[in-house]
Computed example of a mutant assay.
Amino acid sequence: MSAEMDRAYANGDFIEGAADYPPRWQAAAAEFRDELGARARLGARYGDGERHWFDLFLPEAPPRGVMVFIHGGYWLKFGPRDWSHLAAGAVARGWACAMPAYTLAPAARISQMTREVAAATAAAAKEVAGPIVVTGHSAGGHLSARMACADAPLPGDVAARIAHVVPISPLADLRPLMETAMNDDLKLDAAEARAESPALLERRKGCDVSVWVGGQERPSFLWQARLLSEEWDCPWHVAPGLHHFNVIDDLARPGSALTELLIGGL
């Protein structure tokens, strides 16, 4: 383990008031679910595991497509209901939004999480017709990028419907994380780190990808985002002034540049 690498990937230590963010997210998420009422379909199943479920948020009219948002937390913590409110931007623009849970470490390895997110995406695709957009934040950014990989464990018809993948502050090369204390729970080895690193894998042909990252993020996250954009020859956008905890806020706003990037023109 490396203290230097732990520091490189410590986000909250460099964000003022970091401890206040999770309760704010949870309160906003609960309020959004309450406001949506029957249009919040909670706990749809995609498998038999304890965390094999997703919430589906629906617009008032038949949806134009479905956005899949994959939560972060270094594959170790949190769940989709901490961020329900981030569906608001897409829902206001006539899209459904699916937010899957997945088994966290140490109960699951990252390769299993990839398979679970693919299964959840396929299940959401059965619920909503039309194009699919996949996004996610941090560890969820990694898992969203995995859905754009040529080897993603998706049914062919579902993969063909994915019109855009937008990893937000993604972890694209997992090899540095093998040197962090969190790897005691992640249990990454060299083979899995390589096999699960989007930047080391081939992007699926025809899958449109854009990378998004905050300008005030840790240098390691700026490097990860830039690396993915270079390896996949896809655009990346650095959102000025935003850090790792507020870079996702614009998903809740229908007119934001991030929401427009995700679903504009689809």
Rank of each mutant, 00 (worst) to 15 (best):
T114A: 10
T103K: 13
L251M: 08
A3L: 14
D184F: 11
G156N: 03
D13M: 04
L36P: 01
G94F: 04
M67K: 07
A150L: 00
R45F: 03
D189K: 03
G72C: 09
P219R: 15
D185M: 13
G65I: 12
A61R: 15
H142Q: 11
R194N: 08
G12D: 13
W25S: 01
L58T: 05
R109T: 06
A38Q: 13
T121L: 09
D82T: 02
L171T: 09
F78C: 05
D233P: 03
V209M: 07
T121E: 06
A38I: 14
A129V: 03
L143E: 07
A29K: 01
R146I: 08
L266V: 09
M99Y: 06
L177K: 03
A90D: 02
M67A: 00
V68H: 10
V165S: 02
L242W: 05
V91Y: 05
G72K: 09
L171W: 07
G47K: 09
H164F: 07
A125L: 10
A199S: 14
I248P: 01
A8C: 12
G72A: 05
A3Y: 02
Y46Q: 04
E260F: 08
V213L: 07
V133E: 04
M5A: 10
K77L: 01
R109Q: 12
L177S: 12
A96W: 01
R64A: 13
P106C: 15
M99F: 04
A193G: 12
A29S: 05
W25R: 01
E31T: 14
L143M: 07
D20R: 10
R109Y: 01
F245H: 14
A10F: 10
F69H: 15
D6Y: 10
P23A: 02
Y74P: 00
D157H: 12
D55W: 00
P170D: 11
I110L: 04
W75Q: 11
G72W: 06
F57C: 01
G73C: 04
A122D: 15
E196V: 13
G264E: 00
L171S: 08
A30L: 11
G37H: 14
S256R: 04
P80H: 08
G17C: 08
A107V: 15
P155Q: 01
A159N: 13
P22W: 00
D6S: 08
R64E: 10
Y102W: 05
A27L: 01
A160M: 11
P155W: 05
Y102D: 01
A193R: 10
A87R: 00
G214S: 06
K77A: 03
I168A: 09
L228V: 07
A107M: 04
L200M: 11
A107K: 11
K205V: 10
E31V: 12
A225Q: 05
D189L: 08
P100F: 01
A29N: 02
L177G: 05
P59W: 07
L154P: 01
A3D: 15
A3I: 06
A8Y: 04
V91G: 03
S2T: 15
A8K: 14
G12K: 08
P100R: 04
L171R: 00
